[in-house]
Structure formats: structure tokens, C-alpha cells
Simulated scan of single mutants.
Amino acid sequence: MKNRKIMFMSPYHVETVEEEYVPKTLGDHEVLIKLIYSLISPGTEMAMLSGKEDWAKLPLCPGYASVSQIVESGKGVQDFQAGDVIFHYGNHCEYQVVEARDVFLRVPDALDLKWVPFTRMATVAFTSIRVSDIELGDKVSVTGLGLVGNLAAQLARLQGATVIGMDLSKERLRTVRQCGVDYTLDSGEGSVKEQIMTLTNGKGVSCHIEATGVSKVGVESLQYIGSQGEIIFLGSPRGEYNTDITDVLNYCHLYNRGCITFKGAHEWRYPTEPNPFVKHSLVRNSGIVFELMQQQKLHIEPLISHVIKPEQASEAYEGLRTNKDQYNGVLFDWS
């Protein structure tokens, strides 16, 4: 059979490769899957495509989140069978053999399959809520309203907060309003601090979620976090940034600078599988995301900007690099 996959050949050079695929004999705990939809993760995959990430040596087949159908199961696989539609962390490769323990969840029958890969982005965002002290009635701000930042803003609102979303992109601000976020601010217009102080009656936000991964943005956000507040670093910081670290640390240390708590919210701080000694896990969070989608409480449809064929991969990644306003949630349709 023919197998298609997307390859990062060299920095900013993307190809869709077709090759002959001969299925191997499955191990006892392996499954053969066929992709239905896979989602590009703009932050992670564009970093990989730059060729600057030591952990992602080119050439490689990228991938982040997928919904697939199981073609065949190994003899020892008990929880899944051929025909099951599953959500998993998969590459942009039409046919793949994966370990059954790496298959996350069976997809509920009534769930729109285009929404399913966004579960991964939502569980990434979920970490910022899990580590936070957000309570009903709090004011929360979010910088960076791409897929992860948008979903973090939605989840903070579901936690009971009044949410202020901030971005330089008017299109992303429009999208987050479609998703129900309370207030939006254009980061490039006027003083963000003054606007937030107006919205919070001069107190500042009790929690700020930094989802851009731009160090400068994180540092500048400290000035509008209220006393005893917290900053959650959701986006992975990339790139060099020089500043006075003593000034930054005093926001954490001194009462008159806010006495702010710094928290990291990397997705992998929680175990993959449920654990009797840890309340949260990626599987549990994914199941909750399914429920929120089914209940129409987590809005996914406004995030989908493109549903395209794998043969258009080069166009998609170029769009994500040069036209971020129009390219955001890009799904590959493998049908």
C-alpha cells in the first residue's frame, strides 16, 4: 500500500513524501493505525522546522496530535480493537505502528472528528489552570492567543475567572471573542498596564498566563499582576533576552513589587496515565476535554483556519511562518 508522510527535509523546506508501505508483523502490544486528521502545532513544529532545536534533528517526520482508526491490533492488546477511532499523539504519517500504551483514548461517537486533535492543545493549556490558584471571581490575563493561549483563556473562564486576552493580532482577538472570552486588548495599542488597571479597578490581575514564549513579554507582564498574584509560564521560552534579573526577581521577592509567585506549566509535569498518588494526568485531562467539547463549553470550531490535504503541507507551514493572522488551526485531512 502507499503511505504518505510529511517531512521536514532542512530548515523551512517541507515535502510530502509517498512511499511503498509493507505492514510488518505486529508485536503483541502494538497497533497499526491510519490517520484521519492530524493537527499542526504552530509553536513546536515551527521551532522544529527552523532547524535550531537540538532535540529535533532534520530531516524528520513531525507531528503532535491526531485522530486515527485502528487497522489491526497485536495479540496482547485488550483495550482497543480494529475499527476503533482513537485520539493519540501521532506524527503526520498516514500509516503508523504504535505501542498500545501510547494510544490515549477512544473517541466518543458523537464528537466531531475535526475537533479531536485539538485535545492535545487543550491539555497543554490545561496545565496552566492545574498549577494556578485561579478561583471563582478572579481576574486573569493571557498573553498570546494562538491555539494554546486561546484554550487557556477559555479554560480559565470555565474555572470561574473573568478573562482578559491580549495579542498583537486582530484576527486572534476576534477569534477569542468568538470563544466567549470577556475582554480583549490589542498589545500594540496604548498602555496595556493602564487598560488592565482600569478593568481591575486598580488592583491588577490575580493570575497572568504567558503563552507567547517570548521572554520580554513575560517580564513586561509583571507590572500589571496584583499583590500576591502569580505568573504562569505556559509557552516555552525561546530566543535570547537581556534584562536586569535583580529587578525581575524583586517582583517575586518584595511586597511592594507585588510578591508574585512564578510557576512553570509544561505539559509533561503530570504523568501520562492515571496514577493513584497523583490527581491529574494527561489521560484524565483529555477525557475532561472530550466532555467539555461535547457539552459545547470548550469552543473548537472558531480555531480551525484550514482543513487541507497532506500534499499542501509546504503551503501550510509557509502560511504559519509568514501569515499568522490567517493560519492558526491547520488540520491535515488524510481521507
Rank of each mutant, 00 (worst) to 15 (best):
Y317M: 09
L320W: 07
Q312W: 00
G287K: 11
I300T: 09
L185T: 02
Y255A: 13
Y251R: 09
S132Y: 00
K193H: 08
K52H: 12
L303E: 07
V219T: 11
M1E: 13
V217N: 04
I36V: 14
C252Y: 07
L35A: 08
L185G: 05
H280K: 06
K114V: 05
L292Y: 08
T25G: 15
W55T: 00
Y21H: 13
E94K: 05
Q195T: 06
G239D: 14
G213H: 03
P276Q: 09
S314A: 15
W334M: 11
R172H: 15
F8D: 04
V192G: 02
L254C: 10
D133W: 00
T44H: 11
P62G: 05
V14R: 10
K203A: 14
V103A: 05
Q159I: 01
I304K: 05
Y251N: 09
Y37Q: 05
Q159R: 13
S141Y: 01
H306S: 07
G180F: 01
T143R: 03
S236H: 07
D333T: 03
F332C: 14
D28K: 13
I36T: 08
G213W: 00
A316Y: 01
K309W: 00
I36Q: 02
C252W: 04
P42I: 03
G239C: 13
A65K: 00
S191M: 08
E230P: 01
Q312E: 08
M197K: 10
D247T: 12
E171I: 15
K2S: 12
E240C: 03
P237A: 15
L35Q: 09
G204I: 00
S128Q: 09
L303G: 03
Q96I: 04
G319V: 04
E171T: 15
H88C: 09
V278G: 02
I70K: 02
S281R: 06
Y327D: 09
D28T: 10
L26Q: 14
K52D: 10
I164T: 06
S281F: 03
M293C: 09
I225Q: 03
T162C: 14
Q81R: 12
D247F: 07
I196M: 06
K203S: 13
I196W: 01
P274L: 10
S236E: 11
R284K: 15
A110T: 13
P271Q: 15
G235Q: 07
V163Q: 10
G90Y: 00
G229F: 00
S169Y: 03
S206P: 01
T198N: 15
G146D: 08
V142M: 05
H299T: 09
A313Q: 05
N242Y: 11
I260T: 04
F87H: 12
Q223H: 06
F262S: 11
G149E: 03
D102L: 06
E240P: 01
L254W: 14
S128V: 04
R106N: 12
G319D: 09
H280L: 02
G74P: 05
G63Q: 10
L111Q: 10
E210K: 13
H266Q: 14
R284T: 11
D84V: 10
